[in-house]
Design a protein around this nucleic acid. Structure first.
Lengths: 147, 147
DNA sequence: CCGTATCCCGGAAGATACTG
DNA sequence: CAGTATCTTCCGGGATACGG
């Protein structure tokens, strides 16, 4: 592991916040401008919004799903939001929409390689939350008691 | 590209999303209920919202920052939103707020170990976006041409 | 069945003034 | 300096009805 010109904190054997990585990211994130103008923040905003993460995980888990399947599996989502989210994810290359001109119409969605790759990232993140959220929730109650 | 220590394959050869991992997560994510009731979705919503990611990255990069520093560095954030975001992140144990009762008042923020750990996750995600967003943006233009 | 078109509302978030 | 209080604006997102 490379040593930066700055002392690195260590958590669980992992070097935290490798400065090189950080600089690479900060060089690209446009802090001056919000999502529509800063591409990175824009991509992230769309891929991590209220429903998109769930959709990606769902397609990662089930491989191929129809519009109605997704609607049924993701409780509470409206057809409008599902449609919009799917469109965003398709535009950014996370999934593919395939139409079968049958009667009745059939449309299938599945992740692209990029989508699968991203799905793994999200899965890692979810796993992290899963591993830490007991303490987080416990902490919340403690904070509530104090306040 | 970095190889994970997990039994997951990568893009190109593309095995998807380790089923075991998936099942572990899906067992915990409460698909019936939205964020305030499903703890995982709630934690994620707060930690990945419009400003929080930036704040965490900023503190991962700079170690310790004062309120005003954060406000200056994160262009466009209002004192109100900064305050709210910081409070959320403190409540969930991502950062620590330290008050120095001087005149004028000084308040410092820095990440907890949990926050640093999470920061690395976010950094990975940002790195992923950084590596892929050229093709994503390119794709968007192509899609625009067609539509 | 797969969405789109509308209408509508509540909450997220900006601007600004103010206080300990 | 470090926020809070307030007001307003805006739009994400829900419900629903309809069209291809």
């Amino acid at each position: 592991m490379k040593q930066s010109n700055r002392d690195e904190t260590v958590v669980g054997g992992h070097a935290v916040t490798d400065k090189k990585k950080m600089e690479k990211i900060f060089a690209r994130i446009d802090l001056e401008n919000p999502p529509p103008i800063c591409p990175i923040r824009d991509v992230l905003a769309k891929a991590l919004d209220k429903w998109s993460m769930l959709i990606i995980l769902m397609l990662g888990y089930n491989d191929t799903l129809r519009f109605g399947d997704l609607k049924k599996k993701i409780k509470g989502i409206s057809p409008k939001m599902l449609s919009i989210s799917l469109k965003h994810l398709e535009q950014d290359g996370f999934l593919v929409r395939t139409v079968f001109p049958e009667v009745p119409l059939r449309v299938e969605y599945h992740l692209t390689d990029q989508g699968k790759s991203f799905c793994n990232k999200i899965l890692d993140l979810s796993e992290w939350i899963n591993d830490h959220f007991p303490e987080i929730v416990k902490r919340r109650y403690k904070v509530d008691e104090i306040m």
